[in-house]
Design a protein around this nucleic acid. Sequence first.
RNA 1: GGAGAGGUGGCAGAGCGGCUGAAUGCACUGGUCUUGAAAACCAGCAAGGGUGAAUAGCCCUUCGUGGGUUCAAAUCCCACCCUCUCCGCCA
Length: 435
Amino acid sequence: MLDPQLLRNDLQATADQLLIKGYALNVEKYSELEKRRKTLQVATEELQAERNSRSKNIGKVKSQGGDVDALLAEVAQFGDKLKAAQRELDEVQSELNELIEAIPNVPHASVPKGTSEDDNEEVSRWGEPSTLEFEAKDHVDLGEAIGGLDFAVATKITASRFVVMKGGLARMHRALTQFMLDTHGQDHGYQEVYVPYMANRHSLFGTGQLPKFAEDQFKTSLAADDPNQKEEQDQHGLYMIPTAEVTITNIVRDVILEQGELPLKMVAHTPCFRREAGSYGRDTRGMIRQHQFEKVELVQVVPAGDSYDALEQLTGHAEKILQLLNLPYRKVTLCGGDLGFAAAKTYDLEVWLPGQNTYREISSCSNFEAFQARRMLARVRNDKNKTDLVHTINGSGLAVGRTLVAVIENYQNGDGSITIPEVLRGYMGGLTLIE
RNA sequence: GGAGAGGUGGCAGAGCGGCUGAAUGCACUGGUCUUGAAAACCAGCAAGGGUGAAUAGCCCUUCGUGGGUUCAAAUCCCACCCUCUCCGCCA
């Protein structure tokens, strides 16, 4: 959520910046609503003040044994007037809130202009895409041949976009998770946390998934199939997390931190659940886009001034995993048009996939500045004993399913076997090959 | 699942229609005292929002959440959420 003060004082400039993100803010509508809000709020609060002082006076007179009939008659009409004013204010305020809550974050000055992923800016490359002496297969062919990936049985059990892993690949998937958690926990200074895989609507609102992206989430229903309970369900149903960002970041929701507690650096491994509602035709083959996948997530909570350093640092931590696995990748800065709703700046890490002969996203590291903090009321006490909003940064370190795909495709051998990366062998009882 | 108790400021804990944004204690901050520290004493100490140039002043809101009664609600009524205790069940 943007600072309402910013919208009031710098509306046009903010609208211009949002254009970089491809978001057209309705300036007229906003100003009009804001004007009404101001008038109504001032008027309503004046009425409240008036009512309060009169009511207090009645109490005073009464306690002194005076006659309050006249005073009561005088104040009698206030109730209705106040209620009407309040109702009108509520209407305008909720309309205004709806508008503000739907406005995306403003991109940072360093974000390149552009409308699609074609305009993303490459920052760096690491490693050389391998030149195989045979024709590269993709992970589906390799995995199915080994008997380690079974999409058909997953579809039978559940639905499309799920997978069953078996044997060495299932084990390597687990090894990757352990390796990532250990590296971030021991070498990069993150506190390992275990978090719920379901979250309430307040948490999803806090990190920005709600209300705008409800159709991307899986939601549970608590009450029975009773139409009378519909509203109940909407209020209290829980969401399967689309990313651990939701549950980790919301640890600091409604919290005032002390300066000494920052920076907070946390890492968690969780499954993630996504409806993928908007991508019916895309990546239907293989493990690239699933309804359920594992991810190791990094989150930092820092003072406002430190967040861009933290973004660089956190991105470096994710890169380190790719480097240790010896997987070629490139780092890109997302352009304005490709930037997510809540992010001010995002680096994507794209790993080389020989089977697709291209780089594919495997990590996304973003600085949200105060956008999430404002929604969550996550604050830190400053030197003047006042509260400042914190900044939040997060990134995948890494998406485990896609990392498995990358390992399968980059470590494939001519006979269809997969060499196990050295750093994983300790997690796999010393095995060197899956065949 | 059954029975009961309860949700008040950073914590503990009073208040059960008006002068209560909220007693008291602890914690914290500043001061006096002291060579220094402790103790003692004095003072301060919630958040969100509006107005505003203002981190000034004034005003509004908030005692789990939402609604209701009332001129007036932390206090009364209703619904929901959450926590705890006992019994049952259970990885």
